[in-house]
């Protein structure tokens, strides 16, 4: 439980980061939200077996982390925390999809083979062979799509984390509201963020109370677990009702309004347009393959 608690405190560290004062922090939240959306949509739109095409996309997170002075280790740790989800989505691919679509030649490494027929070699880097090693390793489509999923996960989740760390959760919500996302969704998001901590606190108090009166250190028995979850739900409902009352007392009418000065100026236009151009270029031209072709001079 202590671990869960620490992780949550860690999440709120993002608020501290968002209070930074670089020009990226000062940028209108809408510009950052828009760029992140374009980035995520483009990365996700890449083909199932794309790996090399995804590599240049790393430029955007690197740019943001460097110029916004974000602690890279913190962001990697947060990504690692979510990694299992992507891992279990992708790990079945190697079992399902056993078609060989790439062959790594140990004398001259084939970087990428696009089609299943093994005849369309798109890039080749000649390492002049590794001394004394010959032969080939066949790679199935499943493994390649697995790596593709993991890369996409790192890029998209990284971009989202960077967005929150440079903008702050509430400003992201306000930007989404300005983009026309319906009010109830915004309220949901904001309340999720605000009351996550209160809920975990409530749950950890219950678990502590249980731990102090169960003298064996075993896990919670399943029937007790059900009761505790039910209890937690009831407490949550109670609290939700009280919060709603508090909101009604101050004139809540279904919309949350905040005083936020937003200014979409020249810097914002340049930021969005510049990055959109770069991102779309990465998507349309497979840059690593182009470079590989250029170096190895194999068309």
């Amino acid at each position: 439980m202590a671990n869960l608690h620490n992780n949550l405190f860690d999440i709120f560290y993002m608020d501290t980061l968002a209070a930074g004062d670089t020009w990226l922090h000062r940028l209108d939240p809408r510009a950052k939200v828009l760029t992140t959306l374009i980035f995520v949509a483009t990365v996700v739109s890449c083909g199932k077996y794309e790996v090399s095409m995804l590599i240049p996309f790393i430029l955007y997170p690197v740019f943001m982390v460097t110029l916004a002075n974000l602690p890279i280790l913190y962001i990697i740790k947060k990504m690692a925390l979510l990694m299992p989800f992507a891992f279990f989505i992708g790990i079945f691919n190697p079992l399902m999809d056993k078609n060989i679509i790439a062959r790594i030649d140990l004398t001259g490494i084939v970087v990428w083979i696009e089609t299943i027929g093994l005849n369309n070699i798109m890039g080749l880097i000649d390492f002049n062979g590794l001394k004394g090693i010959t032969g080939t390793i066949d790679v199935s489509g499943g493994w390649i799509s697995f790596f593709s999923i993991m890369m996409r996960f790192c890029l998209t989740v990284g971009a989202a984390l960077i967005l929150i760390c440079t903008t702050g959760f509430d400003s992201v919500c306000m930007a989404l509201q300005r983009f026309g996302v319906p009010g109830p969704f915004i309220v949901q998001l904001m309340f999720l963020y605000r009351y996550m901590f209160v809920l975990i606190d409530e749950a950890s108090r219950m678990l502590r109370a249980r731990a102090l009166r169960t003298f064996d250190t075993g896990n919670i028995k399943h029937n007790l677990f059900g009761q505790m979850i039910g209890q937690l739900l009831l407490r949550t409902l109670d609290r939700a009702q009280r919060i709603h009352l508090a909101m009604c007392c101050r004139g809540f009418d279904g919309h949350v309004r905040m005083v936020r000065k937003m200014n979409f100026g020249m810097t914002e236009i340049l930021f969005v347009a510049g990055w959109s151009l770069v991102i779309v270029t990465f998507r349309m031209y497979n840059i690593p393959v182009k470079i590989g072709t250029l170096i190895s001079e194999i068309p």
Binding site: G168, D170, M190, R194, R239, L245, M247, R250, M258
Partner: peptide, 14 residues
């Protein structure tokens, strides 16, 4: 129950 907004300012401004 009463402080539901992201910052103190937003809450008082609500």
């Amino acid at each position: 129950d009463q402080l539901f907004m992201p910052t103190v300012f937003d809450d008082v401004a609500f």
